[in-house]
Simulated scan of single mutants.
Amino acid sequence: MSITVRVIGIGPGGPGQLTLDAVDAIGATDVFLLLDKGSRVAELNTLREELVARYGRDGHRVVRVPDPPRDRDPVDYGAEVRRWHRARGDALEALLRTELSDGQSAAFLVWGDPSLYDSTLRIVDELRDRDGLSLDVSVIPGVTSAAALTAAFGITAQGIGQAVHITTGRRLAQTPAGADANQIVMLDSHLAFTETAADDDHVYWGAFLGTEHQLLISGRVGEVAESIAQARRRGREEHGWIMDIYLLRRASGRQPGGDGA
């Protein structure tokens, strides 16, 4: 069974951030596969379906499958994520075999860019090894949430000659010494910077980037950390979900890897 699979980056959420390549890819696809995470985040799938309705060709179909459950606080994080990926792969394999015919195309719509803290490409790679499936995979890059964040604030991600470290909230405390001048932090439900950063460090925080719900707060950590925490709580309560990201910039003059107290 030969299937074309497109992994399409659709940006952080604003329809205007969809690239022309993504529009073309959506228009060339037969079946769109959505992992459904339930009513709490229904708005996310609604946004995807609006893009498909706007740019999809006549006769396209959208097929949902319940996203397998995942332990968000496991003893072994890596093992749990690998188990979850396998379960997702099993669910998606079943859809490919039952919902598509030989020679048709399927697509996944991925928030931001498929290469940056997203599991879709790993799952698709694993599906290639399954018996009886021949997948021709193409990846369409998307506007990243990191790019949307710096654009929203009108800033560069780094100073002259400096580097940028991209990490997650779970790993923020493990940033190597000397790599903390400019850090873009994703997937941080606990706002780890409140425990690792110095009061004089600067944070640029954004949520729902590019959408009508966009939230932006920036300033010295000691002055805005509580405002960010409150805005994050309100955003999650109001919408049932939140996607946020921040740039943490070390205060001028503070030594790399210095004490954040």
Rank of each mutant, 00 (worst) to 15 (best):
T19K: 08
I160F: 13
G16E: 02
R249V: 13
P68H: 04
S145V: 09
A151K: 01
Q17C: 00
L96F: 07
I245Y: 03
R254Q: 12
Q230S: 15
E80Q: 12
D73C: 02
R170L: 03
R72N: 06
L44T: 10
I8Q: 03
G56S: 09
G257Y: 10
R236H: 10
P141T: 03
T150V: 15
R170Y: 10
L248F: 13
G154P: 08
V5Y: 10
S134P: 02
L35I: 13
T120E: 08
G142E: 09
G154M: 06
R171G: 00
T211Y: 06
V139R: 03
R254V: 12
L121E: 05
Y246V: 01
A179F: 15
P114N: 09
D259E: 13
V62E: 02
A173T: 02
N182R: 05
L44K: 07
T46P: 03
G89S: 12
D36H: 14
F32G: 02
I3C: 10
V137D: 05
S39G: 05
L248I: 11
R232M: 13
V221R: 10
G154R: 04
A163Q: 11
T175E: 05
V139K: 03
Q230E: 15
V110C: 10
A229D: 10
A147E: 13
G253A: 12
D71Y: 08
A198D: 13
R232W: 09
L247W: 14
D30E: 11
A207R: 03
Q17N: 06
V110T: 07
E237D: 14
W84S: 05
T194C: 10
A87T: 03
Q174L: 12
Q162E: 15
I140Q: 00
A152V: 07
G89M: 02
R232H: 14
V62M: 12
V164K: 05
V221C: 15
R234T: 12
G38C: 08
H85G: 00
P141F: 02
P176H: 07
I10F: 08
D102N: 12
G38N: 04
I3N: 04
R249H: 08
W111H: 00
W205Y: 15
G103M: 09
D118L: 04
P12M: 04
T211D: 05
G132H: 13
R233E: 11
G169E: 07
D90V: 15
M243T: 12
S252V: 14
I228M: 05
L209N: 00
F153P: 04
R97E: 03
G112E: 06
T144W: 02
L33Y: 11
G16R: 00
T196V: 15
G78H: 13
G257V: 07
Q255P: 05
V52F: 03
A197T: 07
L116D: 03
T120P: 06
E238G: 01
S2M: 09
R86S: 12
A148F: 00
L215V: 15
E237C: 00
D76E: 14
A79I: 11
S101I: 11
L35T: 14
S189D: 12
E50Y: 09
A53W: 06
A231W: 01
R40P: 01
A28N: 09
R130M: 10
A177T: 13
A87V: 01
H85M: 08
G89R: 06
I166P: 01
G206W: 07
G14Y: 00
A157K: 00
A157N: 05
F108N: 04
V224R: 09
